[in-house]
């Protein structure tokens, strides 16, 4: 496997996952099969605004939190 084809590891909701380098947040959400309108993303403790999903590229070691609303009191 060449260096450029090597996968990068990022942490999503506490799980370490491997993706193609250069993946954007929009790409990540699509690969995970999620609906962008129903989730919010935090990357390395900073909110990623929905309007920038297509522009923000993940880098190896990023820690992401992807959340949604669930029942609560």
């Amino acid at each position: 496997m060449s260096v450029t084809a090597e996968n990068m590891c990022v942490t999503v909701n506490g799980e370490t996952l491997a993706f193609t380098p250069g993946l954007t947040v929009a790409g990540l959400i699509a690969q995970l099969g999620l609906d962008t309108r129903k989730v919010a993303v935090e990357r390395n403790l900073e909110i990623v605004p929905r309007s920038t999903y297509a522009d923000v590229r993940l880098t190896p070691g990023d820690a992401l939190e992807i959340v949604h609303f669930i029942g609560g009191g």
Binding site: L32, G33, L34, K38, V39, I66, V67, G71, G72
Partner: peptide, 17 residues
């Protein structure tokens, strides 16, 4: 409502919304 991590192992689970 509460805010929680999306369950990555069950992505088709119905959502509150």
């Amino acid at each position: 409502v509460a805010v929680r991590r999306v369950n990555l192992s069950d992505r088709n689970a119905p959502m509150l919304q």
